[in-house]
Design a protein around this nucleic acid. Structure first.
Lengths: 189, 189
DNA sequence: TACTATACTTGATCTAAGTCAACGAATTTA
DNA sequence: TAAATTCGTTGACTTAGATCAAGTATAGTA
């Protein structure tokens, strides 16, 4: 049950078995079928998830009801509706499984307790934030002024697994282009 | 010289005078005229800046030579070419003063030393990252699927000071629209 | 396995916003 | 303070990509 998480911790330099044990004991297993809503639009996020198996998506709806996706978390990654988790305000986004999932869940209270008591865990949190920030900045630069073809080339270079695991419609909503445009571009590549 | 920084620290809950002293002593004053390049495209960022007075911009150039701005730091804010500062890779962006500036500068070594030795300072760094992440996420959602008018309304609501302090051209490059489009929209509001 | 619903593809059309250009205003620099 | 750049505005034109629609394929459900 915890082998993926332990591998993650080892990878991040937390190799002490008791510390690993202490961290793992804060997580509970949750199985969910595809398309389960884990955080609803008006809900405040109180859980951090670690993906053992499957895939989770973060997305919102604009006022015309169109989806805009911002993040896909695959196996071995942490994911939360972080702005809401941090500020404890309504998420204004959805967190949803898009495959049958096996997840490890930790409450916000436990999460911050780990951050405060285990310096190495605080370091992991900092790294998550740093990485999230860097990816977001690259995406802002990357998508600004890119045309549709360049966006698709960007995704092929930077997140090829998205095209393999995620539907065209969702990839298009991540790139900010129409599904038909993505379809046409893929046909020409 | 340090009054703005001390106000910032007080505001963030660092009220102990010796701690404030210790932090301030790591910063040196740098005056710079407008349009000074503080980090060049191929340079690796080794300084964190605190803006006492003036304004700093982060931007890059796409392959057609067009600017894309991602951040403007006014008085009382910290700013760095963070992806480069964190990963110690070439910035692939420019950090530039866009007004006559009075800046406080801290080296990367000193910065991380403060993070490691002063827990409250580590907390500030975490907050900077959290806030940066949240702002970036909102911008990604906000700009995805917004038309030009909605982008302008967004900036009026969320960062009105940009329109007052920054040139139309730079605001347009921040919003990902042509300067002429911004001009036309402003004329109609 | 069959039925239903959703997703993908492709063509035809439309429109928001980009580009180009020209002129006046504002800002820099010598 | 005068000359030289750069910036902002506006009009005419162009185009990338959105929307709409219809047919086909795929996947979820009973």
């Amino acid at each position: 049950m915890y082998q993926e998480l332990i591998a993650f911790l080892n990878n991040k330099g937390i190799e002490n078995v008791e510390t690993q044990q202490q961290i793992c004991s804060c997580f509970t297993l949750q199985k969910a079928k595809s398309k389960t809503i884990l955080v609803d639009y008006n809900q405040t996020a109180n859980e951090y998830y670690f993906v053992n198996k499957g895939c989770i998506r973060l997305f919102t709806l604009n006022k015309e009801g169109q989806e805009s996706s911002r993040y896909f978390a695959f196996e071995g990654n942490f994911v939360a509706a972080l702005p809401s988790f941090i500020d404890q305000k309504p998420a204004e986004e959805f967190m949803q499984t898009i495959e049958k999932c096996e997840l490890l869940k930790i409450s916000r209270t436990s999460f911050y307790h780990l951050v405060q008591t285990i310096p190495e865990f605080a370091k992991i949190y900092t790294e998550i934030l740093e990485l999230g920030f860097i990816v977001a900045q690259k995406r802002i630069y990357g998508f600004q002024g890119f045309d549709a073809l360049e966006k698709v080339q960007w995704i092929i270079k930077n997140q090829p697994q998205l095209l393999l695991r995620v539907s065209n419609k969702m990839v298009a909503s991540y790139l900010g282009i129409a599904p038909s445009t993505l379809s046409r571009i893929k046909a020409k590549l």
